[in-house]
Amino acid sequence: MSAVAVADVHEKQAGSVPRILVFSTNNISDPGIDLAGSQHMHYSPGVEVISLPCTSGIKPSWIAHAIDQGFDGVFIASDGDECAYLPDCAKRASGIVSQAQVLLQAQGHDPQRVKMAAICSVCAEPFTKHVQQFSATLAGLREAATK
């Protein structure tokens, strides 16, 4: 996206709900997020999901890109200790978040804009609570930025 287009995105977002990009995983956290929908639990429509096979496959640069382009925050719905691929997935995911935070700081963004929590295949309620709280945090950051 060009710089002008990015500016347009930021202008369009003004007054709207915080946009949160969620990286979930096909076999663990995505079923948990689906379950939240099946149970008609409500969270902000600003929350949108991209699903991958494993949390350890997320590039830190994707997180930085998402925020740089207009998402208010990135929530990683991680496999935690349930990853079927990598026994050290939680440790790797933690490293990915740390790297992303360094990138965000270098780009002038608040590292609080990335958050991670383990979401299991039945974690409908925890997911909903996490993204509601994160949305509130990001709304606070928006408000602070406009003062």
């Binding site: 709900v17 997020i33 689906d34 379950l35 939240a36 929908g37 099946s38 008609h40 639990m41 409500h42 969270y43 902000s44 429509p45 600003g46 949108e48 999901v49």
Partner: peptide, 17 residues
């Protein structure tokens, strides 16, 4: 699951999403 069912309280938001 990730849109209409979880935004039954916000049809406009669900459509944009």
């Amino acid at each position: 699951e990730q849109d209409s069912w979880t935004h039954t309280d916000n049809p406009a938001g669900a459509t944009h999403k």
